[in-house]
Design a protein around this nucleic acid. Structure first.
Lengths: 232, 232
DNA sequence: CGAATGAACAATCAATAAATTATTCACTAC
DNA sequence: GTAGTGAATAATTTATTGATTGTTCATTCG
């Protein structure tokens, strides 16, 4: 079925282009069909409905987002603490830039989640697995002192909720959020790591994060400011 | 101006009743005027516009919510840890029950925040002050070991974001959220408290919380279940 | 003069009609 | 049989209109 697979891909490519340019609601099946040089009816041989095209695109987006985060893991040799911090900061930066440069992606995600609630649950679960792996490593190496890894993973994930799609909660700038997250991670790290000879666990430093590639804006990629500021 | 003050109060009482029963949008100025036995025009001698009535009601609601939380503070003698934990759990329970029993209150808050963004910022700031006071006390008594109280306050507040109006983020039950929050607090407490003689800081126990009065539902208070579960 | 009115006007909302769009399916081409 | 079509239909969206509501203000009342 390589033939129908490439056709299916053509539809996805066309849809991603139109969804990110004009948004999901303003994109019609007829337009997608025309882009793929086929009839509207034929789309339905590959997708059960319009929403399913969006689901597939969102699913891939979510997977590649986790891959970006995971890329931090198999980098050079680092402490578990560094890994954990870099993953959390990467999450903040990735989702922040996503919302800033590709607002249509959020719209798409919200539409998908609104009638596929399971989608969000699974995305969050995938993300937690990354956290859990780091906690396990740190526990094994003795760097962390955690008596219940699964529960602590959930706690860690929950405590950093504000820094996933942060613009949904606040209109702070990325720099402000990074400073704040550093303080959150300081407290958490002191909660995870054993105190050695009375020396306090040092504060979290904001990672440089130059090893993570920023997301390019779809069309006019001239605005690279990191400040938000919705309303007065 | 005691005369105009009581008139103003009459308007607020009538508005609170109608807003919580029928919602803000479906309540008309004409109805409020009739409830107060006055003309529509006269309302505008006391409030600049309809939205300002909502703002005043929401402001009082927010103040009394903080008072509920603060009530935990000047209770009997407790450790700073217990105070902090009880405040955080009280927050979860209060906002959870609010959304469950009085959904119109959320609607009102959202309307107010949508064109008075400052409102939310100030509400959060008030709440943080409670956190900060506890941190200060704990720091002074030596129970906590915090090198930067203001920054840690913000961190603590941010880390518990998910447990304020939790239903906006998840459809977990209150019991599930409480278990999760206990794990979050365990990590945070271990980050705030010094280790004594190699004994690990014990896990957070879910407070009984019977000292906090639940919110009564406005009209038909027959449903007292704590489970949510929006969609399949 | 302060307190209150209610008709007048502008802004918003609700209901309906019109147009567009998603989806199906009997059918053709290869 | 597989791949694809495109007209027919059901579901949604958009436009239009009339009704309702928020707000103002010249005026009345005490």
């Amino acid at each position: 079925m390589s033939e129908s697979d490439t056709t299916r891909e053509k539809i996805i490519v066309a849809a991603r282009e139109r969804f990110s340019h004009y948004g999901y609601p303003k994109t019609t099946i007829a337009e997608l069909a025309e882009d793929c040089a086929m009839s509207p009816g034929n789309i339905y041989r590959f997708f059960k409905g319009k929403i399913d095209i969006a689901v597939e695109i969102a699913r891939r987006e979510a997977l590649s987002a986790v891959e970006v985060i995971e890329a931090v893991l198999d980098c050079p040799v680092r402490s578990s603490r560094q890994r954990l911090e870099e993953v959390v900061f990467a999450d903040l930066r990735y989702t922040f830039h996503l919302l800033e440069n590709q607002p249509k992606t959020l719209e798409l995600a919200q539409i998908v989640v609104s009638d596929r609630p399971q989608f969000q649950i699974e995305s969050l679960r995938r993300e937690r697995r990354v956290f859990q792996r780091i906690l396990h490593e740190g526990q094994a190496s003795g760097e962390f002192m955690v008596d219940n890894v699964p529960a602590t993973t959930i706690a860690l994930h929950a405590a950093t909720t504000k820094y996933r799609y942060a613009q949904l909660f606040t209109n702070q700038t990325l720099a402000e959020l990074e400073r704040e997250l550093a303080h959150v991670m300081t407290v958490i790290m002191r909660g995870l790591m054993p105190t050695v000879e009375g020396h306090a666990v040092p504060e979290t430093q904001i990672p440089s994060g130059t090893n993570i590639a920023p997301i390019a804006a779809t069309s006019d990629a001239s605005d690279t400011s990191t400040t938000s500021g919705k309303s007065a």
